[in-house]
Structure formats: C-alpha cells, structure tokens
C-alpha cells in the first residue's frame, strides 16, 4: 500500500545534518552526509547492510559520537550539548531498535513504565497505569500487558518496542530496520503502525530499512545511502528512476526480478 504524499514545510527542519563523517578505525562509514528531516514527514533511509544507516541514527540520538560535521536535533547542537540537555532531548526522541531491545527481566507493563516513571516522577500510580494501557491499546496489544518479552512473537515485540518509545510522546521517531526478520503480513502491520504513529502523534520520523515495500508504504521522502553518502533523494519513483547500476541492482534484488 503506497501512502498519500505528504508535502513537508521545508522551513521547519527538526533535524539538520551537514557533512557528517564517522569512522570505526580505518573503516570510513559515513563520508559527508547531508540531511534535513522536516516537521511531520517520514524520511526513509535506504541502503545495503553495513553502509552506515544505523550509525546515522545512533549519531542523531547521541549513542555514537561523530568524527566531524554538524548535527542539529530539535534545536540542540549535538557538538555542544551537555548531559542534562541530552537527557531532556532524548525524551523527545523515540528510538525503535532492530531487535526491539525489550528488557528481558521485566513484563510488558514494566517495560513501558520504565521510561515513564523515570522521566515523569510526579505521576500517580493511576496515571501511570492509564498511560501504559492507552499506549498498548494504540498498538493493539493490551492483552499482553502482563506477559514477559520471551512470550511474545517477533511482530509483537516490535510493536511493544514502538509502544515503549511512544509513552513519552516523542516528537521525532527513529526506526532501525522496523520490518527486519518479520513475515510479509506482519511487515504490513508494522508499516501501517508507523503511518498511524505519524498521524496520531504528529511525529517526524527517520526509517532505516533495506526493505523496499516498507520504504514505499511509509516514506514521504526516500534517500539512498551509497558508499557513505546520500546519492539519490526524492519520492520512491524518483529514487529508482535512474541508470545507476548500484540503485537498479538494489531494486531488482528486493523485488526478485
């Protein structure tokens, strides 16, 4: 299902990245990335495994430090940000991990409560329960509230992972391979959930994926990361309407032509 085209307001950039470089030892992963994420849009970052897609969002969330370049997130310069500001900023950024990263030793309820009680210390028990149930209902998994993560399916874990980030009402969502390892039907559910999150919570999102179905279903704009830089940018059709062999190969293998 292709989504309705969203036209972003290019004056309202929530994330601005200029000439971002990041290396691990001798391996240069990001070689001068430029990016703008506009208010309310879903931006898909496509690329093969190991091209630095996940590194990009880890730099945005402050999990990794950049080597050079300019990264500006929701008004904060990541170069000059102090720990207290970073902690505050992270409440506004939701990060959905590739393997969901649910806390194994906690139930679904405790997983969702964990960030909430530590970031909103004045909430009553009733308010916490209400917030947890509300967000779980939003992802359609209220019935799993007392289950352990090990008792959930891959798709359910992804949904709970997304719910855990939504409980803090983030302004920006970062999805790391949201459909990786899921069956096609569950992938469609996750794609729909990503679109629902965009409209319900009015989030701006970066979706890291190599799944073209996911890219087509969720992306308002698509960028293609090749050899450490964004090579193609635009709508799905604009990105793949090219003679560039690397892009064509990526498209062909995704749809098994």
């Amino acid at each position: 299902m292709e989504k309705v085209k969203f036209i972003p307001d290019t004056n309202k950039s929530v994330i601005t990245i200029k000439n971002l470089k990041k290396s691990f030892g001798d391996l240069e992963v990001l070689r001068g990335v430029d990016l703008n994420l506009y208010q309310g849009e879903n931006l898909v970052v496509l690329g093969r495994s190991g091209t630095g897609k996940s590194v990009l969002i880890k730099v945005i969330s402050g999990l990794l430090k950049k080597d050079s370049g300019y990264v500006h997130v929701l008004g904060y310069d990541m170069e000059k940000i102090v720990p207290k500001e970073l902690q505050y900023l992270r409440r506004k950024i939701g990060f959905s991990f590739q393997n969901s990263a649910l806390y194994d030793s906690m139930t679904v309820r405790e997983n969702l409560e964990f960030p909430l009680v530590r970031n909103r210390r004045n909430l009553t028990r009733k308010e916490i329960n209400l917030a947890v149930e509300d967000v779980l209902e939003g992802v359609g998994l209220l019935q799993t509230i007392n289950q352990m993560p090990s008792e959930l399916s891959g798709g359910q874990r992804k949904r709970i992972g997304i719910a855990r980030t939504l409980i803090l009402r983030p302004e920006v969502m970062l999805y790391d391979e949201p459909t990786a390892g899921l069956d096609p039907i569950t992938c469609i559910d996750i794609n729909n959930l990503i679109n629902e999150v965009q409209t319900t919570y009015n989030t701006s999102s970066i979706i890291i994926t190599h799944d073209l179905t996911c890219a087509k279903a969720t992306g308002d704009r698509i960028v293609m990361l090749l050899e450490g830089q964004f090579q193609r940018q635009g709508s799905f059709d604009e990105v793949f309407n090219t003679d560039d062999e690397r892009v064509k190969t990526f498209y062909d293998y995704n749809f098994v032509k």
């Binding site: 402050g62 999990l63 590739q98 806390y103 970031n119």
Partner: peptide, 11 residues
C-alpha cells in the same frame, strides 16, 4: 542493545 534502549529513553 537493552542498555542503549535505556539510555535513549532519557534514563
């Protein structure tokens, strides 16, 4: 990545 998940959730 559970520790990273805690970190990015502002805890």
């Amino acid at each position: 990545e559970q520790i990273d998940a805690m970190e990015v959730s502002g805890t």
